[in-house]
Amino acid sequence: MNILKKNLFTLLLLSLWVSSSQAAMRELPAPNTVSPEMQKLTEAAPLPFWNLHPKDHAEWKSFVQSVAEATATELPGLREQMEVTVTPGSIAGVPVFTVTPRKIRPENSERILLHLHGGGYVLNPGETGTYEAILMAGMGGFKVLSVDYRMAPDFPYPAAMDDAVAVYRELLKTVPAEKIGVFGTSTGGGMTLALGLRAKAEGLPLPAALAPGTPWTDLTQTGDSYFVNEGVDNILVSYDGWLGEAAKVYANGHDMKDPMLSPIYGDVSGFPPTLLTTGTRDLFLSNTIRMHLKLRQAGIDADLIVFEGMSHAHYLMDPNAPETRFHFTELKKFFNQHLQ
């Protein structure tokens, strides 16, 4: 009888967990105001690992490896389609990848874009972090330097930012700040903004322009869209999945409202022109619009692109989607306007 009760209790808990996981996704009609390519992304099932809660170092490493293996299979075809080459190297002791388009526009010959990849400070190690850099180099015609920064759980805060700043500091020795732009998506967007804060704090010249895409500007669960878009965004889905776990494992006990972790709480006065991107279904919609307003209130030349119907970072997920082409064309125009 005790065994029966135990089994029934286990089944009840399992059913509640399944029900809560399913309930997290809210069924909405696919918007007919987006391209067919984007509509397919909007209609897709949520990422299967969104509600993962790694319990130890081994589970984190297994999670990271499985995502990396899936991404790695897409890179050869993407490099060929974008007509770029990717060369590994090292700057200031930090691994980097130089992404070079087959054709560099004459005005970009002395310019360079510094790329900080996304992945919650845990995902996309090594060359798997170059996906966005390949798109930018191919569609924008810029040479892109992608930083393979250290990540949690092996290297928690401030390792990622230390690596990004070390590469930027070294880059300044050969390239004037006026010819450097910085960009990245999600975590990479948050790091792009934090790099501006670190540069100010350390007396370094700021880059000529910043382009944070759907940036993780607040590692705490603060902001309307963390709740309004919960179960609507089919990429991140909810802060209460792996995302919140990643915030904790990277912060490693530090105050998550430290501006170097959550740049929304930093002093952005004196920042360079900034272009931010998000979508109406993005869990990080509030992260992005709060940052945009903060920059505008500080008198910074800041623009905002909000894509219809788009979940978190959908503009990276189909290189053939018109929205993807539009995003990187806008970034190209933005950097062409502000880099000398």
Rank of each mutant, 00 (worst) to 15 (best):
G279H: 10
Q81M: 04
V64E: 11
N108E: 10
V182C: 02
H292I: 07
G138C: 08
M25H: 09
A246V: 10
M25E: 11
G253K: 14
S62T: 14
F284T: 09
P176V: 05
A160F: 07
H338P: 08
P156G: 12
V86C: 12
L12P: 07
A24V: 15
L41N: 13
T187E: 02
A302S: 15
A194I: 03
E127A: 04
A194V: 00
G270D: 08
M151I: 06
L113S: 01
A164Q: 05
T130L: 03
N234E: 11
G119M: 02
A44Q: 15
P54I: 09
S286M: 12
T214K: 01
D301V: 07
L47Y: 09
L75I: 14
F97A: 05
H57V: 11
F334Q: 04
L285K: 09
T274G: 02
E80L: 10
V67I: 15
T220H: 02
T128Y: 00
L285A: 14
A247T: 10
T192Y: 04
L339H: 09
M291C: 08
V165I: 14
I305S: 02
P106L: 01
K257V: 06
I112P: 03
L261Q: 13
Y265D: 06
T174I: 01
P322H: 11
M191A: 01
F227L: 11
T71V: 13
R290M: 15
P36A: 07
D255K: 06
A159Q: 04
H312F: 03
Y157L: 02
L145G: 00
G190K: 00
L204A: 02
H338V: 03
P259R: 12
R79S: 15
G196I: 00
A208Q: 07
P106V: 06
S146D: 08
Q81K: 13
A209I: 08
I305E: 05
T100G: 07
M291A: 13
L41F: 10
E178K: 14
V147M: 03
